[in-house]
Design a binder for these strands. Structure first.
Lengths: 345, 345
DNA sequence: CTGAAAGCGCTTACAG
DNA sequence: CTGAAAGCGCTTACAG
């Protein structure tokens, strides 16, 4: 079927291009009869607007999107950042300005940043929300005022829902980690779990999924679980203590940051003793990649942070410019398992 | 830095938009001095053409891209097909027509299809090349005549190189399969290898990578290797024979199609005997997914066929319309490991 | 309720 | 060698 344009529709309907434009964009009054006639022609010819045309005319507006991402030493967040910046650079050419803010992962800091961005006149917001009631309420209220919020990389609590969430399905990530653990330990393990922080839904969901998977595995147990606050020193101390306290512990599940610290502890405690620990971690920051390459970590589960960043802005572009809502309000990126052989591809 | 357009450059240089256009597109003669002046301004302001503008004007041309993909019952090829069709549908709006041909995986059929497409006036070709001298020579000759060839999903032999290859790095895929096998069998296995066909580089490279990885694993061996021609019945027979002939065989590496047949043989031979076979396969057609879900296959390695299809056309769009060569002439898609827990995400 | 018109950024055939 | 102009498809302010 050949492509049809607005002016061809206009010709077929015996009206002007402007009238067709009004129908397409649901903008302005149009006589009911002619509207229906035009809609019928659109349907018959499967009309879809030419995106290049839309993009071009869009440069005449000035649209701003605000982004609030976590300020942290963890290089993981740079990967997310990169994705956002890449897409932002592209959107610049389509008349969209992206305003970036890097903010402490903490309620009051996020709240005041949201207010600042609102005062700059943003039409949409991208945020990694701190899991707290005050943040939820704020985000829901600005959505009510017509500003869509995309939660990226980590989400609000389950009972709430933003315009769209873009990121991993962390519950399934936890299950995937457990699945790998089962395959590698032949279904027999005593595992230590080291969590990042409990105010990130991304972390708590991973633990939930892991636990649930273990329910069907009679010979797999969690013997200890601790928070490391994504910190390498805490992580080292916790791992070391776990390993010494539980001599039969043969697996460690690293839920978030502090991977390097935990791996050092394993080396310090086990090296030369013949004791082998199966380690599953998340993400692929440089320290983690190195540990996968040298065999300390059996597998790491990655979430495409760059893609998350790009996708968050894409979704908003489609909505703001093309008036097209996302296909789902949970857009999940791939759960990517990486072992030594495919981590550098 | 604010964005700059051709007409702003024109103003700064004191020339017309047309002259700037000529410099940007390297088209037509321009006085050397003014050319340099314009180039300097472009550089200073980091000028990059607005893609929407380019796309729009492009509709006035008529560009055709030919695609030759393998005709087969294997649903894997539908996935590749889908990706191509998706992108083709998008490119329609940019004035590009994609001509699809589904052809037997065999030299003479591919050759005559190439000729047919050339006679239709294509400006570029996408193909899954049969690995044969006659095909190589044909493709190289049409590249010499100025028509870029993108090899997709499987490549020409190593000593030759198309304009661009889009697909997995199959050698690394083979290594990844071996890496998983090592993790799951604790480095001790007697493996049977079942190959698709030997005239697809994608298949032979996987075997190479697998073999090479095993060189460093003293307790992992290949005890048998056979071709199944991607056929389920042959596959069943081969797997059954292998399992019976080698009672200590505890792992099977399924290099390509015929996954269902091989898995049935494993069930028939091993069910109820307590014998466990670790199976690693490729791709995620429905039958394979089912075997991963029910635990017959430990892991399957996927290659994003849809993405390969889309990317092959993207690369050509960038080249034909924006004059931008691909960042590399090997564009590798991700090596995706899927286990039961993440295969349905 | 409707149409004529301008303009987004770009490319290119045409006239000089 | 250079400029004026047309036109790709779209949106929207303006005049009626």
């Amino acid at each position: 079927m050949a492509i049809i344009t607005q002016s061809e529709i206009a010709k077929l309907a015996g009206v002007s291009r402007a009238t067709v434009g009004r129908v397409v964009n649901n903008a302005g009054d149009v006589n009911e009869e002619t509207r229906e006639k035009i809609l019928a022609i659109m349907k018959e010819h499967d009309y879809r607007p030419n995106k290049a045309g839309q993009a071009l005319v869009n440069r005449q507006k000035e649209i701003r999107i605000g982004c609030i991402i976590i300020k942290s030493d963890n290089p993981f967040f740079n990967q997310l950042n990169e994705g956002i910046l890449e897409k932002a650079d592209e959107l610049k050419y389509y008349g969209i300005e992206v305003i970036m803010r890097s903010v402490e992962f903490e309620a009051s800091a996020q709240l005041s940043c949201v207010s600042e961005l609102l005062s700059l006149g943003i039409s949409a917001l991208v945020i990694q929300p701190f899991m707290d009631k005050s943040i939820c309420e704020k985000l829901l209220s600005i959505e009510k005022s017509g500003i869509p919020v995309v939660t990226v990389n980590t989400d609000m609590p389950d009972y709430q829902s933003s315009f769209c969430y873009v990121g991993n399905d962390f519950y399934m990530c936890g299950k995937t980690a457990a699945n790998l653990m089962r395959l590698i330990t032949a279904g027999r393990c005593e595992a230590g779990v080291i969590v990042g922080f409990s105010k990130a839904k991304s972390h708590t969901d991973r633990v939930l999924g892991f636990r649930d998977y273990l329910k069907d595995c009679p010979d797999m147990h969690i013997v200890d679980i601790q928070d490391n606050n994504d910190d390498d020193m805490e992580s080292y101390y916790i791992a070391k203590t776990m390993l010494l306290a539980h001599p039969r512990l043969n697996a460690i599940f690293l839920v978030a940051g502090g991977v390097y610290g935990a791996c050092r502890a394993i080396r310090d405690v086990c090296s030369g003793t013949g004791r082998h620990i199966t380690v599953i971690s998340f993400d692929d920051v440089p320290a983690t990649r190195e540990m996968v390459r040298n065999g300390t970590i059996a597998a790491t589960i990655c979430q495409q942070p760059q893609r998350q960043g790009r996708l968050a802005l894409s979704v908003l572009y489609d909505y703001l410019i093309e008036g097209k809502a996302p296909s789902s309000n949970r857009l999940y990126t791939d759960i990517q398992i990486k072992v030594a052989a495919n981590i550098d591809v």
